[in-house]
Amino acid sequence: MERRLVVQGIENLLEISIFTILALFMLGGSITMIMSRQTIFSAFGFLVAMIALAGIFALLDARFLAVAQIMVSVGAIVVLSILTVLTINMREENLPYERHKYKWMFFSFILALPITLLIYKSATAMYESFKTMEAVTSKVVGKLLFSEWVLAFEIVSVLLLAAMVGAIVIARKEIPKHEIPKEERA
């Protein structure tokens, strides 16, 4: 009995220390993201935050979500944004000149503090402990995704297709004019 308690205490301590490390990485990455002047450093801060978020998902026993986060957010979104930053390749003197950046940050943080407290208080007022459940593996997620959430899944797939077409159209070099028929051209 006593030995089980000790093992549980060690597990708890381990969980809290892993959470602390991941949370520090996440907060540090996101603060780097909004503070740094060079865009590429912001992108790297965002990368660190996304990887740490995947670790926190794994800590929450949402295994499939952690893998999806690594594959989509880190592997696609962050890489795409770093590639865009490098493609645009702004010189430092062409970046926006933000003289009052820290002043703005300070005041907007004071304004955002009540919102933070509101989210935190309203979330913690409802639930105080985790329910014991089995890990959310890909089997569970797949069953739910194709039974209960199948409509949302289809809508997301159509949305992704529309976003792909829209991104191609927006980022095209120039929109070609309508083709003039041959008889009018002569």
């Binding site: 999806a68 949302a152 997301v156 976003a163």
Partner: peptide, 16 residues
């Protein structure tokens, strides 16, 4: 978790 998974898809569309 399933809603969060769908949200990841929406985030990808928004990023593109």
């Amino acid at each position: 978790s399933v809603i969060a998974l769908l949200m990841i898809g929406v985030i990808a569309a928004e990023a593109a």
